[in-house]
């Protein structure tokens, strides 16, 4: 090709050479993306269709299903989480429906918190939702009614103690009527203070190894 170009303009030959190479390159580039067809093997005469035989298709078993392993995944997950957050199972028992000694609505409960200041109040609602189980406590502080929800499995909750049980079983699931002035218990601070005094007395006379977990043990011992 280069020889065909006129010698008068030697540089002009480069243009055609480069154009040529560019075309080649483009061709190769486009070819690389092509799927190569299978090489044609032999003449058509070789490819005589084999007579149809009733071949059995190999049926592979389906991969093992995860659904079969975990029939109730949410339940398993909840149990796992509860096992982690409540290793002794004390809280589960304290709020289980089947346990006759469990805390019920209307009981005065004391929630000890990690940050130090406990909260006590009448339990007016227990919301049983697995790991999200919570209790609603109502108390009166400085003559102002205060209600607090606590998650019983929360790591911030060190322990829940039953201070006083309701004299008669409540015939409602939620005692929201206790917000009304007619039914309001008012402050339970005096009841809690009396309970704590007896606890301290019991602790000093009983054993000295009851440390931080004393509350939980007390709850268990009541059962």
């Amino acid at each position: 090709m280069a020889s065909l170009t006129p010698t008068l303009r030697p540089l002009a030959c480069w243009k055609s050479i480069l154009r040529h190479t560019r075309q080649q390159k483009a061709a190769t580039r486009s070819l690389t993306t092509f799927r190569k067809p299978k090489p044609f093997t032999g003449p058509i005469a070789d490819q005589v269709p084999t007579p149809h035989v009733n071949r059995k298709l190999k049926v592979l078993p389906p991969p093992p299903s995860v659904a079969a392993l975990y029939k109730e995944p949410i339940k398993d997950l909840t149990e796992d989480q509860i096992r982690v957050l409540d290793p002794t199972g004390a809280r589960t028992r304290l709020f289980s429906k089947t346990n006759t000694e469990a805390a019920k609505v209307g009981d005065v409960l004391l929630v000890r918190l990690k940050n130090g200041d406990p909260f006590a109040g009448v339990c007016i609602n227990i919301r049983r939702r697995g790991i999200d189980t919570g209790i609603l406590l109502r108390n009166e502080l400085t003559r102002v009614g205060v209600e607090m929800w606590f998650k019983i499995y929360s790591p911030n909750v060190e322990g829940v103690e039953v201070v006083q049980r309701r004299a008669k079983r409540a015939r409602r699931a939620r005692l929201t009527y206790m917000r009304k002035p007619k039914h309001d218990m008012g402050s339970v601070q005096s009841i809690v203070a009396a309970y704590q005094r007896t606890r301290v007395g019991a602790r000093t006379s009983n054993a000295n190894d009851e440390g931080k977990k004393g509350g939980k043990r007390k709850v268990k011992g009541k059962k």
């Binding site: 919570g134 009614g145 205060v146 209600e147 607090m148 929800w149 998650k151 929360s154 911030n156």
Partner: peptide
């Protein structure tokens, strides 16, 4: 932390 507080006024 998931706890809820509510006052009466």
């Amino acid at each position: 932390d998931g706890s809820v507080v509510k006052f009466d006024d």
